[in-house]
Simulated assay, not measured.
Amino acid sequence: MVIPIRGLPMEDDQALFRPEAWFREARGPRYEQLYRHLSAAIAAGELPPETQLPPERDLALIADVSRVTVRKAVSQLVADGVLEQRRGAGTFVKPARSKIEQSLSALLSFTDYMRQRGKTSSSRILRRGLFLPTPDETMSLGLSAGERVARVERLRFADDTPLALEWSSLPTDVLPDPEAVGTSLYDVLRASGKAPTRAVQRITAVNLTAADAKLLLLPEGAAVLRIDRTAYVPSGRPIEFTRGLYRSDIYDFIAELRLDAPS
């Protein structure tokens, strides 16, 4: 029996949900695998906005799982904000979020940029304190042997949507008390007269680990933008190294290029 799904071509109706498309032995509970599969299909556009999913009973039949399994996977996608259940109508893929664009030519903190966009930023502190530096932190900040680094690890939100994971590291004379950092690191640095004035950034694409994916409400292995930023004060001293993972489904970085006048 072919159960038509509104918004999908007929030939795609069954294949996307059949167990051979998403279930793998020893890859976790069925509801988690189905959740990750549907989440990835939505992110990739295989389930476009306004696509109506089959009713719970029909989806369980196609996927060869129990209705409880379907219910748990769909409930998590609703909680993630990618599906919505409309009373009397069914379950639909929500319209894609509008992307946030950030210029690469301006040195702004996450909080400053969200303020400019009229959005409310917040942070969940995952860890902060004084630590032995990693090789990347030692090289980027020019630390000497035996020095510790002040590190603040945060999950960053805009209007309650998790957008980024950031690991910010600074020399201890620049940030002696990491506990002072809440939402905005740069507010703390400005208050002490130690805010950077320029930065160098390197952008790469990476795939999320299971732990990071859970925090960002994305499927494991989803592609995100990783940005490594080293920021400097006017003297040229590097005083901040931040590594961030940014959701590529709702975050764009924009660079303006100019043609230099011929000499």
Rank of each mutant, 00 (worst) to 15 (best):
Y232N: 11
L215G: 08
V224A: 07
L208N: 09
A231D: 07
A210W: 08
E220H: 09
V206H: 13
T230D: 10
A222W: 04
A210M: 11
D212E: 11
A211D: 15
I239W: 05
A231S: 13
G236E: 06
P238C: 04
V206F: 10
R226W: 02
I239D: 05
R237K: 09
L208T: 00
A205P: 01
P238Q: 06
A210S: 15
D228L: 03
G221H: 05
R198A: 08
Y232V: 07
I239M: 03
L208E: 08
A199G: 08
A211I: 08
T197Q: 14
A205L: 14
A210L: 14
A223R: 15
T197I: 07
R237V: 05
P238N: 09
T204C: 11
A205F: 12
I227T: 07
V200Y: 13
I203W: 09
R202K: 14
L215F: 05
T197E: 10
L208M: 07
R198I: 01
T197Y: 11
A205V: 11
L215E: 06
V224S: 07
P238M: 01
L208I: 02
T230S: 11
A231M: 00
Q201C: 11
K214D: 15
L218G: 09
A223E: 09
A231Q: 10
I239F: 03
G236R: 13
L208P: 04
V200P: 03
E240M: 01
I227Q: 10
R198L: 00
N207E: 10
A199S: 08
L216G: 06
L216W: 00
E220M: 11
A231N: 09
E220I: 04
I227V: 05
V200G: 13
G221V: 00
T204S: 15
T204R: 15
A195S: 08
L225K: 13
T204A: 13
T197C: 09
R237M: 02
I227S: 05
V200T: 12
T230W: 00
K214A: 15
R229H: 05
K214E: 14
R229F: 06
P196D: 06
